[in-house]
């Protein structure tokens, strides 16, 4: 909301391959400071690959990834996390045999130990349930609870730029609404966000801007309000 036009995250001319398969094709995406941007697209359109490219889990063959203006294309993942990036991954990817508390601690892996207490307090304030369940093994929690752990874990690092891969997947409608409220809330505290979603309506309703991906190409982009009205958006989905 408080988007003030300074780019926090930039993808410029990104081409990412898996082996010989060309996945992302000349992708350009910008997320400004404090902005909430959603990345839409059908299955296998390259949304998760985009996030992995941003994190450095896969390297683009050509193109540039910038964080707060700095070229990080060649930097390892840990260095990007240190610069304020965090992710709520697809399928949550919690550390199942570890407790909720330990999962959160892993989220703050690169934070100085001295800050840990404050981070925990912040996250517990947002998700009081996680405090109650701190000794429960993450793998034994329900889907909705796991989603909270995944969110809390990502927030433990005090990110400036948060990536979310289908945060509403597998949640009951009431929980979807609730999780988008939290996303909105976190965004309003100044965190830039790139949210991957298949659920275009809900995500566009809280986003500032959006991009639509189809077979690795950005086929549509614009203000969320405009995209919501857009006829082509439906077409883009149908043409996946």
């Amino acid at each position: 909301m408080s988007a003030n036009g300074t780019p926090m995250l930039e993808l410029e001319g990104i081409n990412t391959y898996y082996g010989q398969i060309h996945i992302l094709q000349d992708e350009n995406i910008v997320v400004n400071e404090g902005e909430l941007v959603c990345l839409l697209g059908g299955n296998a359109s390259g949304k998760s690959t985009t996030l992995k490219t941003i994190l450095g889990l896969v390297r683009p063959r050509t193109g540039t990834v910038r964080l707060a203006g700095e070229d990080v294309t060649q930097l390892p993942t840990a260095h990007r996390i240190k610069r304020g990036l965090a992710i709520v991954p697809e399928n949550r990817r919690l550390f199942g045999p570890m407790t909720v508390l330990e999962n959160l601690e892993m989220g703050a892996y690169l934070r100085p130990k001295a800050d840990l207490k404050a981070e925990f307090e912040r996250v517990y304030e947002l998700f009081p349930l996680l405090y109650e369940r701190r000794t429960q093994l993450a793998g034994t929690m329900s889907g909705g609870e796991q989603q909270m752990v995944a969110m809390g874990r990502a927030l433990m690092s005090q990110p400036k730029m948060l990536l979310m891969d289908e945060p509403s997947m597998g949640l009951a409608p009431i929980l979807v609404e609730k999780s988008f409220e939290i996303i909105k809330h976190v965004n309003e505290s100044g965190v830039g966000m790139l949210v991957v979603e298949q659920n275009a309506n809900v995500s566009l309703s809280i986003a500032d801007r959006g991009y639509v991906l189809s077979t690795g190409r950005v086929v549509l982009e614009g203000k969320a309000a405009d995209l919501l009205q857009n006829e082509e958006l439906r077409k883009a989905y149908l043409g996946r």
């Binding site: 993942t77 996390i81 991954p89 919690l94 330990e102 601690e105």
Partner: peptide, 20 residues
């Protein structure tokens, strides 16, 4: 030690936390 356990459970997720 916890990073070791996290890595052995899910290497990529551990990398996402900034674990080297």
């Amino acid at each position: 030690g916890k990073a070791m356990r996290a890595t052995s459970f899910d290497r990529e997720a551990a990398a996402m936390m900034g674990i080297d």
